[in-house]
Simulated assay, not measured.
Amino acid sequence: MTDPSLSAPVSLLGASRIRELATELDLKPTKSLGQNFVHDANTVRRIVASAQLRPEDVALEVGPGLGSLTLALVEACRAVSVVEIDPRLAARLPATVLELAPQYVDRLHVVLADALAVKAEQFPEPPTAMVANLPYNVSVPVLLHLLSELPSIRRVLVMVQAEVADRLVAGPGSKTYGSPSVKTAWYGVAKRAGSIGRNVFWPAPNVDSALVAFDRHTTPTDGDRLAVFKVVDAAFAQRRKTLRAALSGWAGSPARSEEILRAAGVDPGARGETLDFRAFRAIAQAAQK
């Protein structure tokens, strides 16, 4: 017989309960840690639904805060690892899950760490999906670090600043296409998954938010990723310049830059914003020959 507690929907955090928890912890949300807590249950449910989680998934959440999203995640999948940098929040989270979703508390694993430095061995098992309201001030480096460190992640659904979402999903030729676009494309395909209003947060941010869905390539991209990313950074550091000029410092001289570009089949007069990640890979490979 099925345990009825496992079929009952989890009670999520509302605005009043979030403020009570913040008062209990003497917590004043800080911009430096990107602390804006979602208090709208419908938004939380929408995020989890957009993540397309499977019951067998092991989810990773970054910056769980007071647990708004965590409660929905422990209900949706087999296990959830959360990475929290604030010791007060990390210590309180299991109690919140025990209070509101006691039947799922064993699914939760808390990692007290900086998401920019967390390592794969800190997780009890490899995460297969990442769902998070990322701290807006470090959202891109956190995403790229975790995609690199945790190749087991096949699916990502993150909430980020709307401008950042535009950059992550942009394609070659777009005004918002840049280094984050290329580096994200190295790992997989990103697309917009909707917008989020400011009024679902406490405190309300002064920027618009958006959801980005990401699916990892079914086979890893071949090539030296770090070498390719150096080319990408050099190309976009001076994005208004031609690649011949922009890559001259990286290559050693304008003449060597042009030689490498021609060997890679890339027009030296082109600009970085016109190339996809495969072209940058070709440039890095040509430089090594």
Rank of each mutant, 00 (worst) to 15 (best):
F37A: 06
T274Q: 14
A210G: 06
T70R: 01
A101V: 04
L25F: 08
T219A: 15
D276W: 07
D208W: 04
A245Q: 14
V228A: 10
G188P: 06
A8M: 12
A129I: 00
V138F: 03
P220C: 13
L69Y: 05
Y136L: 07
D40K: 02
R17F: 00
T23C: 04
T219G: 08
A255P: 00
L21K: 01
P64L: 04
A120I: 04
V158Q: 08
V142N: 01
P141M: 12
A115Y: 07
D276F: 11
T184Q: 10
L100Q: 09
S195W: 01
L157I: 09
L261R: 08
L112N: 11
F37V: 07
A237L: 13
P141S: 11
S32Y: 08
A234H: 07
T23G: 11
P87V: 07
D114Q: 09
L243F: 10
R240W: 09
D233G: 09
P180V: 05
F201L: 03
S257L: 01
V80F: 05
A213L: 10
A286F: 07
T128K: 05
D26S: 14
T184F: 04
I47H: 00
K31Q: 12
Y104I: 09
M159S: 11
G178C: 10
K119M: 11
R78Y: 06
A162P: 01
R78G: 10
R19N: 12
K28F: 14
D3P: 03
P126I: 06
E125G: 09
L69D: 01
R281K: 12
W250A: 07
Q103L: 00
L13N: 05
R167F: 11
V111D: 05
D3I: 11
K241E: 02
K230H: 14
E61K: 00
H217W: 15
D222A: 15
L6W: 04
V156Y: 02
L12P: 00
A41S: 15
Y136P: 03
A72K: 03
K241L: 05
L112R: 15
E56A: 14
V228F: 03
D106F: 08
Q103F: 02
A210N: 08
T219Y: 12
G171T: 11
G252Q: 05
S81L: 10
E259N: 11
N137D: 13
L33E: 06
E273Q: 15
S16N: 12
R262V: 14
L134Q: 03
L53K: 03
A185G: 05
S7H: 14
S5G: 02
E163N: 08
L93T: 06
Q288G: 02
A90K: 11
T70A: 09
V58H: 15
L60F: 06
T30F: 02
V48W: 01
H109M: 09
D267G: 13
L66N: 02
V160Q: 05
D166Q: 15
K289N: 13
P220N: 12
V266D: 06
E56N: 09
P126G: 04
L168R: 04
D86E: 13
R225E: 13
I196E: 00
